[in-house]
Design a protein around this nucleic acid. Sequence first.
DNA 1: TCATTAAATTGTT
DNA 2: AACAATTTAATGA
Length: 244
Amino acid sequence: MDKTLQEVKAAPVELLAQAPWVACLTPQQWQRAQRETLLTRRSAGEVVSAKGTPARHWIGVLEGMVKVDGLSADGRSTTLSGVPSGGWLGEGSMLKHERRPYEVVALQDSWLALMPSATFDWLCETSLGFNQFLVRQLNARLGQFLAVVESHRIQTTTSQVAVCLCELVNPALCTPVTGALRLSQEEIARLCGLSRQVTGRALHELEARGLVAMRYGGIEVLDVAGLQAAVRGSPGHAPAGAAA
DNA sequence: TCATTAAATTGTT
DNA sequence: AACAATTTAATGA
């Protein structure tokens, strides 16, 4: 029995219109982009784009959340990145016209926007603003991943978790905040590449510092700036001018 | 609306 | 990793 989901706050079309790159387009460009972009719903756990398949679409998360998984030959998987609502992903494969190196899976019931590669290429060729958006996004992601590497190598597990949480609330990569993120500690642990045990401990520490609030099956980020600071800072100490 | 049951998530060893 | 406790969701009176 299909459940009629009436919980949708805004229509998918309206969410697409609010995408950050839309404002850069001319009316004609927006008209074609809107006409050719497919809006589709995926249930939690559904594969959006399988690893190894040709990248035919640029993927926008209008509502819900998806993750990017790396799969090994023996079926083991690790989560490389989480993309909440407002985020766009897969442009790397689009730009290189290659097959998807990673698997994209819906973490929750989600509304997705799939922009065909032909449309994507056309916007790249005709819209300066669109290119600028891509550069900003790629730059933001690079910074994010560098933070992950840095944190993994020289910081505590707590700051590793903080980094991964920052990714989910980074205004440069997704819609500011939707209240509490529906993400279990087990899913957060996969995102961080840590055990559930260690992740849980780190989350409680962040909660004790007033940066996040834990919910059953979810987490609310209370202080984005504080989280970003926790990425570098050592717990307990707050070096005044040591932001280098 | 309330009680019961199942499933998911979290805490503990 | 396995088990126990807790919370939420679903079902039916």
